[in-house]
Design a binder for these strands. Structure first.
Lengths: 223, 223
DNA sequence: CTTTATTTTTAGCCTTGTCTAAAATATTTT
DNA sequence: AAAATATTTTAGACAAGGCTAAAAATAAAG
């Protein structure tokens, strides 16, 4: 198992995120993403190409090779497992999780990651609702998360309500929330973990943590 | 809070371990410890001196400054907490723990370490029985660990027996074990977790896990 | 279809941490 | 106390990964 430097891994991960399904990535895009000068990016592209992680012809843009994508999924797996750990076990709030996971993801020990995966109960989604690739790089398709754990200002679609008691439904109805509603969390109040919610362009309103934890959403499918 | 490169941290930690209580460390010793050429060590010593982590005069040897010792304790705290985590939570065997902890210790986030500490229940000793410094760098004085968790071939002193049932004492007496006895674990048999024990130069013998887990030892005090 | 503007690459330099070879200082031996 | 040996430091080089400034290629505009 070849392994890569922290820097190489950061490039690979960034390219993976930028290229999406079938796209090409440009030097400037990657430069902006990594906050690194285009000239430096070009240098690294040459190295990654030499290692066959990249399909790249100068001036023509680039994308990951099959091997490169495999490496990317490994990095993402580590990142998201650590995010899950930080959030679930160490009780980090969702927004503190990323930077630390960014460091932890570069610790290379297959055994560590597989044992961590097991310890966490083989989670398939991280606290942001993003899927965690398994040992073989397979990623599950979207699934729901509670709105108490989603990032701020990201519109998501309600797909499940975990408690159907009449009082609960009363609140939902009052706030115009139902399956299929698209909403975003505007603010989290640390004091009582209540949330400010906004639906479309309507006036935002508050939900207590008691209510919010039963509302589950999924990413909005790209149409 | 200033922070240091992985390389700097490795030097600081190594110096801490080499210098012990009051000793001076030499370039060659450190070079051997780090498997790095003496010339490179000299270079780094100059850098660490410039950062006031070291008391160093050329050709005269060196030791950590007060600040340097504080930094070292921070690194050791991280290392040992991760060892505890790997061993206790991820069920790594004691001998697999070190190399991974070596990488994890360089992840710098005070919050991460303090939350990890809390998650682990503020352990004061790592799986090898070494003390874990607290947030303020305070380290508990030696304490006992069960012989089921100590490293192989390290002589330790029996200081406690966790079960004083007559049958237990019978076995201890038969094997000449009592408080103050110095023994080492020669081998661990994974099948039934029994241990091969040796006292001084005597013939080694076997203890079942049932018995061994009640025998507690501490590091031998340097006299 | 040229000219201009933008993007990308090259060329050369810097820093960190390493190395080897040679010089300087300490230590040991005779 | 001088000579021999061992240790430590200096000097100069190199790889990785970043930067700036200038050149080359591509894309956009007239």
């Amino acid at each position: 198992m070849t392994s890569y430097s922290t820097s190489e891994e950061n490039y690979i991960k960034a390219i993976y995120h930028l290229q999406g399904e079938e796209g090409m990535v440009t030097t400037n895009e990657l430069s902006a993403e990594l906050k690194t000068r285009p000239a430096s990016v070009t240098d690294m592209l040459k190295k990654l190409k030499a290692k066959k992680l990249l399909n790249y012809e100068k001036y023509q843009g680039f994308r990951l090779s099959t091997e490169g994508r495999k490496v990317a999924l490994g990095i993402i797996r580590r990142h998201r497992l650590w995010e899950f750990f930080l959030s679930e076990k160490l009780r980090f709030s969702w927004d503190e999780v990323h930077d630390v996971a960014e460091q932890l993801e570069h610790v290379t020990s297959k055994k560590l990651i597989d044992k961590l995966d097991e310890f966490l109960g083989f989670p398939r989604f991280d606290p942001h609702g993003d899927p965690i690739p398994d040992q073989h790089g397979k990623i599950a398709t979207h699934e729901r998360v509670s709105i108490t754990v989603i990032p701020l200002n990201h519109s998501m679609e309600v797909c499940h309500v975990g408690n159907q008691a009449p009082d609960m439904l009363d609140i939902l109805k009052h706030n115009n929330i139902s399956i299929g509603t698209r909403l975003e969390v505007r603010k989290k109040f640390a004091f009582d973990n209540s949330l400010e919610i906004r639906i479309g362009r309507q006036q935002p309103f508050i939900l207590s943590n008691e209510v919010a934890r039963h509302i589950w959403v999924k990413k909005i499918e790209r149409s």
